[in-house]
Design a protein around this nucleic acid. Structure first.
Length: 614
RNA sequence: GCCCCUGUGGAGCAGUCAGGAGUGCUCAUCUCCCUGUCAAGGAGAAGGCCGCCAGUUCAAAUCUGGUCAGGGGCGCCA
């Protein structure tokens, strides 16, 4: 070893110990006669003192040190002189008097400072990700990720699960997200797909009698990115045989509790159970943030016999009139209210009615149309008091009302500081919920058919099987989601293992036997050989870690993530390949115009291309 | 595909609404001073196609259009 200790591990009781340390120059404070270096390694910072009275040679070398030089020093740990102790760092009681120094490697001036203070442009961080990852926050995030994954493995190992790897090069799935394709050199014209999830393989493993399977596995979906979505992401994939819904929920909930206990030292409360319909009614979404109130209020009763046109026509069409109450914001300026109306419209609403509750009555463009009963009913139903703001969306489409109000609820909670600060040690901060009783189908008006909300192998709740042929909207699935503080963390279901039931479901979906064979033939074949009842779940690792670490973006917990256009500023991926490579794969590019544009691109990409060449 | 925000020395910002010489702040870099600092301090210096292209104008960082890049969202994500 080139070192005897780690910088950040030294404490007062090391005083008098000779040590050899390796690390990076974090900061340099040159006083002319004495030089201080904060030396940084994976464990933390420690102050090194260079003094010509200790070693003239080392002092002279230290004068040439700059930020991020990688150095080794040998010297003695000593208590700091009284009055110079630094309470801000764990090693602040001591310092190391440097006797010898070796510059292991020099560093160019870094493109940005490696400390917590600078809020650096993310593009730059990603281009120099290896420097970005030197920062304390990133180190902590990656370490937390490791501890979480490790705790998950420990849990499933102790519960008799077997981790099995499944192929990365597999067959394109007929439905779901867009696949990433890989040309098959040995099969001209054919392609592998990277897995969107190991869904079908884990079901096959149940047919194989594995009984309890898990895998921490990379998955790929070629869809547009979001704060919580990357094109390649990591899932905890779980499947169990001979279980019902309740067994998967119980096991998964215990896993999360165990991980939170081990990693964050907090004892989670039992997860709330929220039926899908109730979640939509109360929060306008199937992934509600339960850390604050502002629940939606149905005003259908209040305006049941209204003459206000917009409400009347919506209610007559079977639509919804619902409200959101923003406490203490009745005095919002007209300009801000107009901005809210615009937001609502951009989300698909025809309009947004705002009502300020003042001591003199209601302040609203619609107030003059309200009857006295309606004003009283509105206040009673919403519970709004003087100073509050009521926002109402009315639409024939229930989903638009819920989408708009659900979105406004989140934005207003963030804007008005209703979202609690990150406080991992507080059990109350972690609002886990099971979302259950999802409808099996959703209506696809464009294609004039019923589509599965989950996937076509999802089990059907027995009591609703009879509606498969008569009223698909009433069929409830044996599927479930976990949500945490407004994020969907996991999704799963009990699968259909009975051939007759699977046929009925395919019929309801309008998929005939030829299509079944073409799309799912190998799974249906497997299910001819005694498939066990089984089910599972798949939590997203990136999201779990981001929430646990208090990050609002999963890029912060992924070592080398991609930008919103799915490119990597560090490697320059994706990039064109040579004609020779294409020839070998029997491919020809038709993106002529695209590549011309590529070559005339401006500064950012040019600099990036520069970094690609050696 | 659509909507919104952002782009100013190496980094982070202000300036843009209301056009008038690249003006300012913090940090970094370079030189000098300094033996107890800790995001050290002091003095000085260097460093800019104001993302890019076009338009309006006597005059554009500022106004207009387009475009590229980064971020947030809608659609999409069984």
């Amino acid at each position: 070893m080139l070192r005897s200790h780690r910088c950040g591990d030294l404490r007062a009781d090391h005083a008098g110990t000779p040590v050899t340390l390796c690390g990076w120059v974090h900061t340099r404070r040159d006083h002319g006669g004495v030089i201080f270096i904060d030396l940084r390694d994976v464990a933390g910072l420690v102050q090194i003192v260079f003094n010509p009275e200790i070693s003239r040679g080392s002092y002279e070398i230290a004068e040439s040190l700059r930020s991020e030089f990688c150095i080794s020093i040998a010297g003695e740990v000593r208590a700091r002189p009284s009055g110079t102790v630094n309470d801000k760092i764990p090693t602040g009681a001591i310092e190391v008097a440097a006797g010898e120094i070796e510059i292991l490697s020099r560093s160019d001036t870094p493109p940005f400072q490696i400390d917590e203070h600078a809020d650096v442009d993310e593009m730059l961080r990603l281009r120099y990700r290896y420097l970005d990852l030197r920062r304390d926050r990133m180190q902590r995030n990656l370490q937390m990720r490791h501890r979480i994954v490790s705790a998950i493995r420990r849990f499933y190992d102790s519960e008799g699960f077997t981790e099995v790897e499944t192929p990365m090069l597999t067959r394109a799935t007929p439905e779901g997200a867009r696949d990433y394709l890989v040309p098959a050199r040995l099969h001209p014209g054919s392609f592998y797909a990277l897995p969107q999830s190991p869904q079908l393989f884990k079901q096959l493993l149940m047919v194989s009698g594995l009984d309890r399977y898990y895998q921490i596995v990379r998955c790929f979906r070629d869809e547009d990115l979001r704060a919580d979505r990357q094109p390649d992401f990591t899932q905890l994939d779980v499947e169990m045989s001979f279980v019902e819904v309740e067994d998967v929920l119980e096991s998964t909930e215990r896993m999360f509790k165990s991980v939170w206990r081990e990693v964050l030292g907090v004892e989670l409360a039992d997860f709330v159970r929220l039926p899908f319909g109730e979640s939509m009614d109360r929060f306008g979404t199937d992934k509600p943030d339960l850390r604050y109130g502002m629940e939606l209020v149905d005003l259908a009763d209040v305006f049941a016999s209204t003459e206000v046109k917009v409400f009347r026509s919506v209610l007559d069409d079977g639509g919804l009139v619902k409200a959101l109450i923003v406490e203490g914001r009745g005095g919002l300026a007209r300009k801000e209210l107009d901005a809210l109306v615009d937001q609502a419209k951009s989300l698909g609403a025809r309009g947004l009615v705002w009502i300020g509750v003042t001591p003199d009555g209601l302040k609203s463009p619609l107030d003059k149309f309200f009857t006295g009963d309606e004003r009283a009913g509105l206040l009673k139903a919403t519970g709004a008091g003087v100073g509050d703001l009521v926002l109402i969306v009315a639409d024939a489409s229930h989903s638009i009302v819920h989408k708009v109000l659900g979105n406004l609820r989140i934005r207003l909670a963030e804007r008005f500081g209703l979202v609690p600060e990150y406080d991992p040690g507080d059990p109350d901060y972690w609002r886990f919920a099971w979302i259950v009783d999802f409808p099996w189908f959703e209506r696809n008006e464009e294609e004039d058919r019923w589509d599965p909300i989950h996937h076509p192998f999802t089990g059907v709740v027995e009591e609703t099987v009879e509606y498969l042929e008569t009223d698909p909207a009433r069929v409830i699935s044996k599927s479930y989601d976990i949500t945490l503080n407004g994020w969907e963390l996991a999704s799963g279901s009990i699968r259909i293992h009975d051939a007759d039931m699977q046929s009925r479901v395919f019929r309801a979906l309008g998929i005939d036997e030829a299509e079944q064979r073409e799309k799912f033939g190998f799974l249906l074949d497997a299910f001819k050989f005694g498939p066990p009842p089984h089910g599972g779940i798949a939590p997203g690792i990136d999201r779990i870690v981001a929430l646990a670490a208090g990050e609002s973006n999963i890029r912060e917990v992924i070592a080398f993530p991609k930008t919103q256009t799915a490119s990597d500023p560090l490697t320059g991926a994706p990039a064109p390949v040579s004609d020779e490579q294409l020839d070998a794969l029997f491919l020809r590019s038709v993106a002529g115009k695209e590549s011309e544009r590529e070559s005339s691109r401006q500064t950012g990409t040019a600099a990036q291309r520069k970094s690609e060449s050696p």
